[in-house]
Amino acid sequence: MTVRVDGVDYEFSSLEEAVRFALKMAKSKGAEVQLHNGTFHVE
């Protein structure tokens, strides 16, 4: 599972870890999280 934040990809071994990271980053940026074909994008 890959989480992309500001064009940088972060790899996670589990969906749970990836979701937690994506939500944490989105909250800190006041951004939204989108899921596309198994890849999260924080914008």
Rank of each mutant, 00 (worst) to 15 (best):
A22I: 07
K27I: 13
E32M: 13
G30P: 03
K29N: 09
E43W: 13
K27W: 13
N37F: 10
R20H: 06
Q34R: 14
A18H: 00
A31T: 11
A18K: 01
R4T: 09
V3W: 04
T39R: 13
D9Y: 12
K29C: 15
V19N: 03
F40Y: 07
V19Q: 07
T39H: 14
V33C: 15
S13L: 10
N37M: 07
L23F: 10
L15V: 12
S14C: 15
E17V: 03
T2E: 01
N37H: 09
G38V: 06
E43G: 14
T39W: 11
V8G: 01
E43S: 12
D6K: 03
E32I: 14
A18M: 03
D9W: 09
M1A: 11
L23G: 02
R4V: 07
G38D: 07
M25S: 02
T39F: 12
E17H: 04
E17G: 03
D6C: 15
G7W: 03
D6R: 04
M1L: 10
G30F: 07
E17S: 05
A26R: 05
D9L: 12
V19M: 13
T2G: 02
G38E: 05
E43D: 11
V42P: 08
D6T: 02
H36R: 14
V5L: 04
K27G: 10
V42H: 06
E43Y: 13
E17I: 03
N37V: 08
V3Q: 00
H36Q: 07
D6Y: 08
A22D: 00
L23N: 06
A31L: 11
H41L: 13
E11A: 12
M25I: 09
V8A: 04
R4M: 04
A22T: 02
G38M: 08
F12G: 00
V5R: 01
G7F: 03
E11C: 15
M25H: 03
E17K: 05
G38Y: 10
Y10V: 02
K29R: 12
E16R: 11
T2W: 14
Y10F: 08
T2F: 14
Y10S: 01
V33Q: 03
L23S: 04
E11S: 12
E17R: 05
S14G: 03
G30I: 05
R20Y: 08
S14R: 04
Y10M: 02
H36C: 15
S28D: 13
F12L: 02
L15P: 07
A22C: 15
G38K: 07
L15C: 15
M1T: 11
L23K: 07
A31Y: 13
V8L: 06
V3E: 00
V19Y: 15
F12A: 00
T39V: 15
M1C: 15
L35N: 04
E32K: 14
G7E: 03
M25C: 15
V33L: 06
H36W: 11
V33F: 04
G30D: 07
F21E: 01
S28M: 13
L15T: 09
G30L: 07
S13M: 09
D9I: 12
Q34V: 14
A18W: 03
A31P: 03
G30E: 06
A18F: 04
R20E: 10
F21T: 00
E11I: 13
D6L: 07
G30S: 05
Q34D: 05
E11H: 14
E11M: 13
A18D: 00
S14E: 03
F12I: 01
V19S: 04
S28Y: 13
T2H: 09
F12E: 00
E43R: 11
D9P: 06
L35R: 04
V3F: 04
E16W: 14
A26P: 01
H36S: 07
G7N: 05
R4N: 05
V33Y: 03
E11Q: 12
K24Q: 12
E43Q: 11
S28E: 15
L15Q: 08
T2C: 15
Y10G: 00
M25N: 02
V5Y: 06
F40N: 07
F40E: 09
Y10E: 00
S28V: 14
R4Q: 04
V8R: 09
F40I: 14
H41R: 04
G30H: 10
S13Y: 08
N37K: 08
E11V: 13
F12W: 01
E11R: 14
V5T: 01
L15Y: 13
S14H: 03
Y10H: 04
E43T: 14
F12Q: 00
R20L: 09
H41Y: 14
M25G: 01
A31I: 09
F21C: 08
F40D: 08
L15S: 06
F21V: 00
E43H: 11
